[in-house]
Design a binder for these strands. Structure first.
Length: 470
RNA sequence: GCCCCCAUCGUCUAGCCUGGCCUAGGACGCCGGCCUUUCACGCCGGAAACGCGGGUUCGAAUCCCGCUGGGGGUGCCA
């Protein structure tokens, strides 16, 4: 059975790149009828924070990625100890007493000579006696994996295809630090093997690690999983997407009021495309159905905020129901201090949801439906004075006081009445009402606003303007 | 420097494996028009790409080589 995992380290918020990795990994597992594991890699005690772990969980949940098994690396104790011993016994690993200063010097030396750095192997052939001696002296040591000379590790990457790397490029590497803690390359192998991971789906920045890990798998007698290395996501400047680019955390998009399904959908289209189809809007279920690793593009993709924004809008106006949009929008409206009633909001959305792409944009856009207080710019006030606004508004007010129009048809009829009676152009009426009711010349349909706004708000706003221009 | 990966409109991509159906398709964005009480939405139309050079072949975006360009890695981080 297929089993994949997503293994974030809680050293920051969930990043768009990692989110996409999680999505692909999740989709592949579900598509194959397999299991998806979430493993928090929190062994870096310095940088790992519980707040980040909580935030990552929240973001995954928001995206609709659910996991079947959960692990926290810090709670796995000395699971790794026995495997280190095994490697030590088999001679695949050995203690190394070189100090960081010595190694640093070797590295600089290599740099100067312009050759690829690799560990000199000085402690490679220490005799048992020498090792005991050094340990008795209390010298600290690391444990290195003995990399067989001249070997070429080959694997068939599910995305990149055939990859061959000569191990001489890196040389013996550390698997246990001098403080006794195991390093990433070692832990990841033991964990993946013990958890039965069959397919490792991760970013292509891990390609250089893969041969090291394959060597460990083999030395430990574990089955080597299949690998799928995803191309990285780039920023507008074509460098790897990072904090520098701003707005790269899932959290930022959640708080900005993007539709989560749209982010999920958009991220899928970054580096993957459906076979034989021009479609772009897919539900999670549909994606589970059609997603295949083989359809992943092997070149890096630039993240495009505009398209994500557009897609969020598509979800708001075409995919989600009015009820659903209302439900998700309410917290944003309340945060902005609006007094919201669900039934009223739903009626408003019926007519307005095609005019915004995110919930925070909706807060601005729908303001006239909820807030009676607003400023009118001088230029608009000037326009009111130029038009026959006083007459229009007085007439409008008296009609509304008597019987407020309940739908856009009635509003239009009312406008015609005023037009006939005062002999003014329709445009003049609409512009006057728009400025008087919203303080601006652009925004949602003014007929809708009049039809839906309570009578009280309507007359309050009109009277206020009447006072100012009389 | 060394190692690895990648290369179709500005961006995401289809096509490439299994050469001819490609006058290179779709989407975002952009430009123009329509709709209209404004802004949006929607609809119609447009500009816009096979990085370069060699091969192979009757024929190459598609196969091969080189160059160039971009990305990643080069830790007792993950």
């Amino acid at each position: 059975m297929v089993k994949t995992r997503f293994a974030p380290s809680p050293t920051g918020f969930l990043h768009l790149g990692n989110a996409r990795t999680a999505i692909f990994s999740y989709l592949f597992a579900r598509h194959s009828g397999g299991k998806f594991v979430l493993r928090i890699e929190d062994t870096d005690r310095e940088r790992s924070k519980v707040e980040y772990e909580e935030a990552i969980l929240k973001d995954l949940d928001w995206l609709g990625i659910e996991w079947d098994e959960f692990y926290r690396q810090s709670e796995r104790g000395d699971t790794y100890r026995e495997f280190v011993d095994k490697l030590l016994e088999s001679g695949n690993a050995y203690p190394c007493f070189c100090t960081q200063e010595e190694l640093q010097r070797e590295r600089e030396e290599a740099q100067r000579k312009g050759v690829a750095y690799r560990y000199s192997g000085r402690c490679r052939s220490l005799s048992k006696k020498e090792v005991e001696e050094l340990r008795r002296e209390g010298k600290s040591f690391t444990i290195r994996f003995r990399v067989p000379d001249g070997e070429t590790v080959v694997f068939e990457d599910l995305v990149k295809g055939h990859i061959a790397i000569n191990v001489d490029d890196f040389g013996d590497f550390v698997i246990v630090r001098s403080d006794g803690s195991p390093t990433y390359n070692f832990v990841v192998v033991v964990d993946d093997a013990l958890m039965g991971i069959t397919h490792v789906v991760r970013g292509e920045d891990h390609i250089p690690n893969t041969p090291k890990q394959i060597l460990i798998y083999k030395a430990l007698g574990f089955d080597v999983p299949k690998f799928a290395h995803l191309p990285v996501i780039l920023g507008e400047d074509r460098s790897k997407l990072s904090k520098r680019h701003g707005g790269v955390s899932v959290k930022a998009y959640r708080e900005e009021g993007y539709v989560s399904e749209a982010l999920f959908n958009y991220l899928c289209l970054l580096g993957w495309s459906p076979p034989n189809s021009d479609r772009e809007i897919f539900s999670k279920e549909e994606l589970v159905e059609i997603f295949e690793l083989k359809d992943i593009n092997s070149s890096p993709a630039v993240f495009n905020r505009d398209k994500l924004l557009w897609m969020s809008g598509v979800y708001i106006r075409e995919v989600l129901s009015v009820e659903e949009v209302a439900r998700r929008l309410i917290p944003f409206l309340r945060d902005a201090g609006y007094r919201v009633e669900e039934e009223y909001l739903k009626r408003v959305l019926e007519f307005t949801r095609d005019s915004f792409d995110t919930f925070s944009e909706a807060v601005e856009r729908l303001k006239p439906f909820f807030v009676d207080e607003f400023e009118i710019e001088d230029k608009f006030l000037g326009m009111l004075e130029d038009m026959k606004s006083y007459e229009i508004l007085s007439e409008f007010l008296s009609i509304v006081e008597e019987s407020k129009p309940q739908n856009t048809e009635e509003v239009k009829k009312l406008a015609k009445e005023i037009q006939k009676k005062l002999k003014v152009k329709p445009k003049e009426i609409w512009h006057t009402l728009r400025i008087a009711l919203t303080g601006s010349l652009e925004g949602v349909g003014i007929d809708i606003l009049i039809a839906l706004l309570p009578k009280g708000s309507l007359s309050l706003r009109i009277k206020r303007v009447l006072d100012r221009i009389s």
